[in-house]
Amino acid sequence: MKYGWLDEYCISKKGAEKDLKVEWNATRYLIGGKMFVMQGGDKNKKAIITLKCEPMFGQLLREKYEHIIPGYYMNKEHWNSVYLDGDVPDDILKQMIDMSYELVLNSLSKKKVREIMEGNMLE
């Protein structure tokens, strides 16, 4: 795979968890029980990763890179999908992952964020 660092990078985020959504045949990376990255395939089984972005930033990326499209089966304003066989530079994809993580983390309650940041997550 072109982005061999992807799994390790996503799971290295503080409090990140990984699961497999069998019915979607997709790997999800979650923070506080909410997804910030999904890795799977499109209807043609082409590998994609889907991430949350600020709407204006996502739009700019879609205009610049042909392999970044509106979120596949997701809210097209807030989510973007990146084809993993495309030409998106590693640093841009890492920036997208970082943004997605921060957006989802900041959508959690202050208590939950504090638990995650302090590493005291009670299951």
Rank of each mutant, 00 (worst) to 15 (best):
E102V: 06
K45R: 09
E118M: 14
V22F: 03
Q95C: 07
K52I: 11
L30W: 06
M74F: 05
Y73A: 15
K13E: 00
G41K: 10
V82I: 08
Y72H: 04
N80A: 12
E123A: 00
K2W: 07
G71R: 12
K76S: 15
G86H: 10
Y83R: 15
L93Y: 02
K21G: 00
Y29A: 08
L93K: 05
K18W: 00
M99N: 02
E17R: 08
I68D: 06
K64L: 06
W5N: 00
I11C: 00
K45P: 04
E115P: 08
V37I: 11
M74D: 12
G40Q: 12
M74L: 15
L61V: 14
I97Y: 02
M1Y: 02
K46A: 08
D87R: 05
D7L: 00
L93S: 01
A16T: 11
D85V: 03
A47K: 13
Y101I: 09
L122C: 11
G4L: 01
K43Y: 09
I48G: 03
K52P: 11
M99E: 15
I116M: 05
A16D: 02
K52E: 03
T50W: 06
I48V: 10
F36R: 10
K13S: 04
L84D: 01
K45S: 11
L108I: 01
E66R: 12
K94Q: 10
V22W: 00
P89L: 10
Q59W: 08
G58K: 04
Y101A: 06
E63D: 13
M74P: 12
W5K: 00
K111V: 13
L108R: 08
N44K: 15
M117S: 09
Y83D: 09
D98E: 15
E66I: 12
W79M: 04
T27E: 11
W24I: 01
P89E: 15
E115D: 14
H78D: 09
K111G: 11
K112Y: 12
R62L: 04
K2M: 02
C53I: 02
L6H: 01
Y29S: 06
E77T: 13
E17V: 00
A16V: 06
N75C: 13
I69K: 15
Y65N: 01
G32H: 04
L51E: 02
W5Y: 13
R28W: 03
W5P: 03
I116H: 02
K43S: 06
L6A: 01
T27I: 11
S12D: 08
I116P: 00
Y73W: 15
W79D: 04
G41P: 08
E17H: 05
V82Y: 02
V22S: 13
H67R: 07
S81H: 04
L84E: 04
I92H: 00
K18L: 02
K111P: 04
M117I: 13
Q59T: 07
M56T: 04
R62M: 13
V113K: 15
N106C: 01
H78E: 12
G33I: 07
Q59F: 10
I92L: 07
E54S: 06
E115I: 14
M121N: 14
K112N: 11
L105I: 03
